[in-house]
Design a protein around this nucleic acid. Structure first.
Length: 579
DNA sequence: AACGCGCTCAACCGCGGCCGG
DNA sequence: TCCGGCCGCGGTTGAGCGCGT
């Protein structure tokens, strides 16, 4: 039986044309072959529409599964509901969106995120599907043009909203409040990483870097679920949600299947100098394959204690705080490489304008390097300024409580070392797989701190949000976050809650880091951040850390735990060490 | 005219929430 | 409380169309 539901084992592809479908339908109708359980898919015919309309007139909306039984339509209830809601119900407004509608959509999206249905409720005559399509089209168009998704005034408005939130309560427990207001652009602005420093012979993660792994095997690994990528949070927030659920099982570094592989392709040619290869992963349903486009390497911070000289750091070990988004690029794979489980997507230049223009000089990036996960090439590779101004004001909304009421003080871009967990506390790589349920992938801030730290948002208070500058960041790391909420994977820690907590502390391209970059002052920011983190991560969190590390834990250290030591990295990564 | 490419949008899919038994 | 069905939502796909070459 051909069903609408995903649990249907047989899935009829929409391969037929409308005509052929109609013809098939007519045949079925003519011979009254309705007993086989056949459920039609594909485009609706006018005859079907008429039947459905008639049915709804008679019975009203709802109880869609009864439509098939009572009306003779060979459509599942879902299909009927969709057809009715999107096309047949009265008062539907057809045609292009008006300027006002567009404005409303933009504003609503800024407030609600991808809540299409709720947005549709605010736009009489418009359907969620329409709005969704419009928005997605708009995204693509603006990304193509290198424009920000939101106009600057909306950013200001959002920032204002967030600031008000900070006054009303910077409590994470109020996340449900926040998600009503915070912009969701983080989910939509596909982060980029500029890999302009890429050179063919850089020590990057290439297939040859993985002894014994053939290209095919790599693909196979990818097909297993991009575990590597996901483990390193190389996911678009858009994508990382429920559809990645299945991948979680192999995302643990230490898991037997945890070595999901990845490969890298050259970025889109015309953007090569601007944004680097950037791919997001999508879990295609069962065997569907996608393409690999690029690689976002910006969401994961390795922060071994720079003072720890014991570690024999490899290029991938981050002998200190690494900077920027250096690439793991496989020069051997063409952009057309087709790999299952990986979807080709054009990199966005959305954040290009936000990267280097206001970012600190490269030498300052180090200290603020909880910005990006950087699978670092060897020392000779060019560090990339990986400063995405993604402060959306959220941390400001949270921090004042820990700042003695002084609020956020705008300060220089002086940077310093983040308090990282001491080596003694780095017992294990405390990256833990975070289950989807722990992080709302949809709402702009995920409704809790995990998203708070993992989702990026467009720069709100930085100048270059203008459209003209968007493509000027040729050298910037252009780190929008293809945000990796799935970052954490655990070698030794399987505790889900702990994983979540660690994820909360995950240092990456986050509002925290940006705030830190822009607000912290030498000598004070450590305590400031500590205080902030103490606010964010309460004592329970520290207790958890302490419990799991058998070591005293401060909020600072908790933060540091978000980092990971190379020594605890999965072997597959270590294999990539070419040094 | 033929072809290729990109865009739009209708429709499908999978999942989660809700609700009733 | 559990279970299963229904419904709605958000993400994704692919056919069709328009435009440029």
């Amino acid at each position: 039986m051909f069903g609408c539901d995903g649990d249907s084992t047989t899935q009829e592809k929409m391969s037929s044309t409308s005509d052929s479908v109609a013809a098939k339908d007519r045949k079925l109708l003519e011979r009254g072959d309705v007993g086989g359980g056949y459920l039609k898919k594909g485009p609706w015919t006018s005859a079907e529409d008429a039947i459905l309309v008639e049915y709804v007139k008679k019975h009203g909306e709802g109880n869609w599964n009864a439509v098939q039984k009572q009306s003779g339509l060979f459509r599942c209830g879902k299909s009927c509901r969709l057809r009715w809601a999107n096309h047949l119900r009265p008062n539907l407004k057809k045609g292009a969106f008006t300027a006002e509608e567009e404005q409303i959509i933009i504003e609503l999206h800024g407030k609600l995120g991808n809540k299409w249905a709720r947005m549709a409720a605010q736009l009489p005559g418009r359907t969620d599907n329409e709005i969704k399509n419009y928005w997605n089209t708009r995204i693509k168009r603006r990304q193509r043009q290198g424009l920000p998704l939101y106009p600057p005034d909306l950013h200001s408005q959002q920032q204002s909203n967030e600031h008000q939130l900070s006054v009303s309560g910077g409590n994470l427990s109020q996340h449900h409040h926040h998600q009503e207001f915070l912009p969701s652009s983080s989910k939509l602005d596909i982060p980029n990483v500029a890999f302009d420093s890429l050179k063919p012979n850089q020590h990057s993660l290439t297939y040859p870097s993985f002894p014994g792994l053939t290209k095919a095997s790599m693909s196979s690994r990818v097909n297993q679920g991009m575990g590597f990528l996901q483990s390193y949070s190389l996911m678009n927030p858009i994508q990382h949600g429920k559809r990645f659920r299945e991948a979680e099982s192999f995302m643990s570094f230490g898991a037997s299947t945890g070595g999901g592989m990845f490969s890298f392709a050259q970025p889109d040619d015309n953007r090569k100098s601007i944004v680097g290869p950037c791919f997001k992963t999508t879990r295609r349903p069962y065997g569907q394959h996608g393409r690999l486009d690029g690689f976002v390497a910006n969401n994961f911070s390795f922060h071994p204690n720079p003072s720890n000289k014991n570690t024999n750091h490899s290029p991938l070990q981050f002998g200190g705080l690494l900077t920027g988004s250096q690439t793991i690029l496989n020069d051997n794979i063409s952009a057309s490489t087709s790999l299952p489980g990986v979807k080709l997507e054009l990199p966005s230049s959305q954040f290009a304008e936000s990267v280097h223009t206001t970012g600190p000089p490269p030498e300052m990036v180090n200290s603020s390097s909880f910005n990006s996960f950087t699978l670092s090439p060897p020392a000779h590779s060019t560090p990339v300024n990986c400063f995405a101004r993604q402060n959306n004001g959220l941390l400001e909304a949270l921090l004042p409580h820990s700042m003695g009421g002084g609020g956020i003080k705008e300060s220089s871009e002086t940077s310093t070392q983040l308090p990282l967990i001491s080596s003694s506390n780095q017992k294990n790589c405390v990256v833990a797989s975070k289950s989807e349920t722990e992080c709302d992938p949809i709402t702009p801030l995920g409704g809790h701190a995990a998203s708070l730290f993992s989702e990026s948002t467009p720069p709100l208070n930085t100048g270059p949000w203008d459209e003209s500058s968007s493509t000027q960041s040729a050298i910037g790391a252009n780190t929008k976050t293809e945000e990796p909420n799935e970052f954490m994977s655990s070698i030794n820690c399987g505790d889900d809650e702990f994983s979540t907590l660690l994820n909360l502390a995950k240092p990456d391209v986050s509002p925290v880091s940006d705030w830190y970059d822009s607000h912290a002052e030498v000598g004070t920011q450590q305590s400031t951040v500590s205080d902030a983190l103490a606010t964010l991560f309460n004592d329970d969190f520290c207790a958890d850390i302490q419990h799991l590390t058998s070591a005293p834990c401060t909020s600072d250290q908790a933060w540091g735990l978000g980092s990971c030591h190379w020594n605890n990295m999965p072997s597959v990564l270590q294999m990539a060490d070419l040094s």
